[in-house]
Every structure is written in C-alpha cells, then in structure tokens.
Design a protein around this nucleic acid. Structure first.
Lengths: 373, 373
DNA sequence: TTGAAAGCGCTAACAC
DNA sequence: GTGTTAGCGCTTTCAA
C-alpha cells in the first residue's frame, strides 16, 4: 500500500489536482466551500499528506533548517538551546535537521555541504559555550550563530551577556553585605566568558566602592577538582584578607568550593557564601545547600536564533552579537558574611549573623538552615 | 548566483546530464576514464553538488532518518544517544531530522505526520529513560525504539540491561566485602528500571548467599533530597542492621546519600560505600569522592538503533528488546566495610580497614584518601 | 561508450 | 470556479 498522491485525492473528490492543491494549501479561496469540503474529506479518506520532497523541489523551499553544532546536541550541557530552536521551528512549520560535528573541522565542512545539498532554508551554527568562532566556508548568507559570534563578522549572532551576569552575581554578594569577594576564575585561556564575567565582577565592586584585591582573583581548572584547589588557596589567606563570598566561573567549580569549605568545617552560607554560573541542570539545585547561580539563557538564545533565521523576528546585526540576559537564580548559598572584623567598614551593615539574612534586591532568599536536621 | 544544476556541469564538460549523473554517482563505469575526469573537473569548477531534494523525489529515497524523542535532545541527560545515532547516520551518508516532542502526544502525532511527509527513510523513536512506550499511531514499519520498548510489541527496540547492571553494582559491593547492602530505590512507580535493578540486587545477594533484609530496601523521591531522606532512614537503623554499602537507583540520589553521610560525620568510602547508576556527566565524577557507578550505554544504544534502522546491522527482534550492557565505572566510593562485628560472618573476610582495600574483579579501585589533605 | 527522454509529486501560471 | 500543463533537478531505462 503506497502512500496516496495528490492525483488520488483529486480522483476521489472528482476534481483536478489544482483544486486539491489549492484547498489543501489554503490558497486565497477562489474555490467554493462545497468543493473544499469534498476535497478535504477525500484527502482524509485516503490519508493524504503532501510530499514535502516534491513540494520542496517545486517551490525551492524545503521548510527545513539546518543546525550545525559543535557538541551541544550530544552533550549534557546546552541542550536547551536545541529546545528553543526546535520550538520556534515547529511554531513556524519548519523541521530541523541536525549535524553535530564534535568540533571536527572536516565533519563540519561536510555538514555545510550536506546542508547545501538538502537546500535547507536557513542554517544555525551553534557552539556549546560562548566563544568566537571561525565560521566554516560555505555557510549560507543569513546563517545565524548561536552562543558564539563570527570571529570575522558577517553573520548575525546571539550570546549570553556574561558581563552583566558577572556583575549581577557579585551584586548579589554585595547586597548580602559582603565586601571581601573573590572571583574564582577558569584557567582556560580561551573563554571570552571568563573575561566578561571578570569585567562584571570589577564593575560591581567599583559601583559599590569596594577596592579590588588582586589576591582575590584566582584561577583553576574548570572542574570540581580545580575549583577545590583554587578555593583552598583563597581560604588559606590570612583571616583579614580571606573572602567571605566567592563568585565562581561556573557551577562545577562551585562544587569544589563546597568541598573545600566542608573539609575545613565551614558551613555554607553561614561561614562562606558562594555564587556559581550556568545553573547547570541536575547539579546546581542538587548541591547542599542548593546553589545560587546565574543561568545561561540557552532556551531563549535558541529561540531567538531560529526566529531570526526564519525572518520571523527582525532583529540581529551582523556587526555585534545580540546579548541576552543571564538571570540570577536565588537559592541558598548566599547569606550575610560571618560576624567578624571586616577589613573596612564603609558599607552598610548587616555584618552580624543575627542581621537580616538577605538583602537580595527583589526576592527573599530562602536561607539555608545550616546543620540543623 | 544560483546554485549550479547538473545541466551546467554537463555543458561545462561537454557531455550529457546522463553521463554527469553516472560519473558523480560512481555507477559501474561504462564511462571512459577520460570522460570521468572531465566531468569531475567541471563539477568542481562550477561548485556543483546534487540537489538532495530532486534526487529524493526521483529515487524515493531521501537519505534522511527521522528521530522523534520525548526529551532526550533538549535535556541534559541522554544526549549521547543522539551522538551515537548521529555518528552511525553520518557513516552511512544519512542526515537526521529531529523532533523533540517534550512528551506532548499532540506534538508527537504531528511529528509522525511530518516525518511521513518528509518521506524519511527510517525513524527512530527515543525515550529519555528506559520505559515501555505506546508507539504513536502511524509510525512506519521498521521504526526502531530507543531506550524504550513498544508496550504492544511490533517494533524492534534497544534498552539498557538494567537487571545485569543492578547485579553488577551489588557485586561490586560484595566483592569489597560488604554483606549488609541496601538498595536505595526510587519511589516513582513507573520505571521498569527500578524493578529490573532490584531483581539484579536480589540476584547478586542470592548468588553470594546473603539473606535479604527487607528493611534494607528503601524508596525515596528521585532527587538528591529524596536520596538524603531515604539514606537517613537507612543510617538510623540499629548498628547491627545498618548497611555498610548502598546501591542507589541513580547518581542524583547518591548525591543525597553523600550529604546524609557527611552530616553524620561518616566518611565515604571508609565508613560507607556507595554505588550509583547512570554515570551522569558532570555529576558522578565531580562528587567527593568520585562516585563508583553503573553507566548507561547511551551512545551504543543510539548507534545500534540507527544501524538497525538503516539495515546496516541485521539484528533486532520485534518480540524482545535488545539489551545492552551497562558497564561499571569504578571510582572511589567503594571500599571495604568498616571493621566491626558483622551481623553474620559467612562471607570471605577482608572485614578490617587494613585489609585489601578492594576486591573488584578486574581493576584496582583508586581508593579515596579520606580526610587527608 | 554515450545520449534522449520519461517521469518522481507537486505548485502555479495560464487558460477556460 | 475550475482544469491543463509546464516545469522544479535529478536518475534511469532504452536506444544508439
């Protein structure tokens, strides 16, 4: 039993294929309501659904958009970009064809060729984490880059606003009363995110009138292990210099901070506050206490990119990436600094454990309950 | 500048389109080597790549395989299934078209229609976690199900061998000398995985001649929180009954076990051994100590499913799911039980902390270093 | 060893 | 209001 073709529907309804095509595509109705009815019934009766292949050949529009990614689709990290792109595609009656290159340049070139051969209507080029990317040759004009931006320009792109995110993270700590705030950075040289978040860190400190202490900017490998080692260096600082709040490059490193703190018998957030970055699923919320962190707007970026690629959204500029807000996710890892002599005292108080437990701008943090069972 | 068509290549090479088609498709060469050469050069010169759409219409084979999933593509969990499927597709010159339904039945039905309209050559139906699935109506014959099996039969499928995985996990504990081994199960009623792993648990105990203590089978919500609560119940048991090893339904719950242990000042693995399940990326390995766990063969299942769907692999049976091995990933959360009077003593010894630290069958576990810095 | 030509299933210009 | 028909770009039979 082969699939029904448009001719079969026409025959069943006693009309021409033109008529069938017209009513099924909702063309401006020159067709009588009566005929439309008959056609639709006939189509249902034979279980007709138009061949996208034939239609694509005829119209030269496939309603397929290609998504080339380095790793996002196969890695447990940025999958929600795919969800956003997928949803936007579906809402606009498009399908997504996926190629995950694993970062291999040859596979990537092959993917571009394949997408071209498939005559996709648009392509998205996505990275797993925010970076500058050299777009592979042959990417169609109109391609939009996702979570990365074209090193050489020429494409629209969307990235997280890491600078504002870093600033928000540090403000969170400042609002809780901290003044000795460390930035536990990645040692990976590449990430633009590292630099931007650092800028945000500095900006937040400056805004609050807090002097920056270079000793409070440490680096480590991007892992729990690396986070622990860097945290140890921070916690080994003389008491008057030791940070009471740590802003971590990401949640994985924050895990290490938790470990380092626990090994010293330090309670979070009573003795040490920490803010992560990424809001990594199945990690940040599962820590004890749940980690206050900055979320990456993966879903929103995916949706944005798809909508722009489809021309549904008239934004995007080839000369500057679109930056999307990274919201702060307040959980229980931030509290006021422990009651102790602060290095300086020019900030508004709340330096006692009894003080208001949180000065978060617009939401009361559900402060951790420490060791109580 | 429109794309080149086969006619352009033919003209450039001074041959017919037939010839071009023949040489570019490597048909059994009736074409002279000389002509072939000329054609290839012409094709390169004009940057020709055949339209997959036109070819698909003509041959009625699109070289596209559809992948319908409930969540895997957009969730940070089973993405490696996609990687396996993707790789197998690429190796066989196919593209994958993805629809993530988010579990919505309507979207799913729409996805099936869309795949049909696209005339995909095959479809994979994937679930995020091992379960029985009612295949949506209209799935083409030959569809293969991934990480789920058809509740009503009729499709080939591949799932993890959770029974053997559970058995392996418990054996790991037994081999280290434990006899009081708990199964910290999920309270979610659905998962077949829960049941199968429990069977494996019982089988391993039986094999070792260890009586099962019903008090050692506890359930909790599938989260760190749920794991912690269930672990507390276990650790509140009278000392003689209290487990020295806990096999957890998954890594998330194992996180909770770590928390519960730490709050009591128990060291892992010195005072308590734990084995997880899932080998969840960015979680299991980041715990302190790194978690010994059972991995889900996501990549392999994805690859298997794609190869079977493509007919490259002549396996698969519609009446029984293909089960794939879940390998044990040895890390540092399993050690010998603490030196104390065991409830019974009929098992081979190594009941002292000084004894051989690991009796793992084929690999020496890198035992954790406890509190030492 | 090569070429002419017939479609694959659809849409849309153009007739009626 | 409705139908005829010419392609979209390719593969493949058949003839030369």
């Amino acid at each position: 039993m082969g699939r029904a073709r448009i001719f079969d529907v026409a025959a069943a309804a006693g009309v021409s294929v033109t008529t069938v095509s017209l009513v099924l595509n909702n063309a401006q109705s020159r067709i009588s309501e009566d005929t439309r009815q008959r056609v639709r019934e006939a189509a249902d009766a034979v279980g007709y659904s138009a061949s996208a292949v034939a239609r694509g050949l005829r119209t030269q529009r496939t309603r397929i958009v290609g998504l080339i990614s380095d790793q996002i689709a196969t890695t447990p990290f940025a999958g929600r970009m795919l969800a956003g792109a997928q949803d936007a595609a579906r809402e606009n009656a498009h399908m997504v064809m996926l190629v995950d290159t694993g970062g291999d340049a040859e596979v990537e070139a092959e993917a571009v060729r394949a997408m071209t051969a498939q005559q996709v209507d648009a392509v998205l080029y996505a990275a797993m984490w925010h970076r500058a990317a050299t777009a592979p040759a042959g990417l169609p004009a109109g391609t939009v880059m996702l979570d990365c931006y074209p090193a050489a320009g020429g494409f629209r792109s969307v990235v997280p606003d890491d600078r504002a995110g870093g600033e928000a993270a540090v403000r969170e700590l400042i609002a809780a009363g901290h003044t000795r705030i460390a930035y536990l950075d990645t040692s990976d040289p590449e990430p633009i995110a590292s630099r931007l978040r650092h800028e945000g860190y500095l900006a937040a400190l400056a805004e609050a009138g807090i002097d920056v202490d270079p000793a409070l900017h440490v680096r480590g490998e991007t892992s729990a292990q690396g986070g622990r080692e860097a945290a140890d260096r921070l916690l080994d600082l003389p008491e008057a210099q030791r940070p009471t709040g740590i802003f971590c490059f990401n949640d994985r490193m924050a895990i290490g901070v938790y470990t380092a703190a626990h090994r010293r018998g330090l309670d979070i957030p009573r003795d040490l506050s920490v803010v992560g970055y990424d809001d990594q699923q199945l990690v940040a919320a599962e820590l004890d206490p749940p980690l206050t962190t900055i979320a990456l707007p993966h879903y929103e970026m995916g949706r944005w990119a798809m909508e722009v690629a489809l021309g549904v959204r008239a934004e995007g500029d080839e000369d500057a990436p679109h930056r999307m807000e990274c919201p702060v996710i307040r959980r229980d890892s931030v509290g006021p600094p422990p009651a102790q002599v602060a290095k300086r005292d020019r900030r508004r108080a709340s330096h006692t454990t009894e003080g208001p437990r949180s000065a978060a701008p617009d939401q009361v943090t559900d402060v951790g309950v420490g060791h109580q069972e």
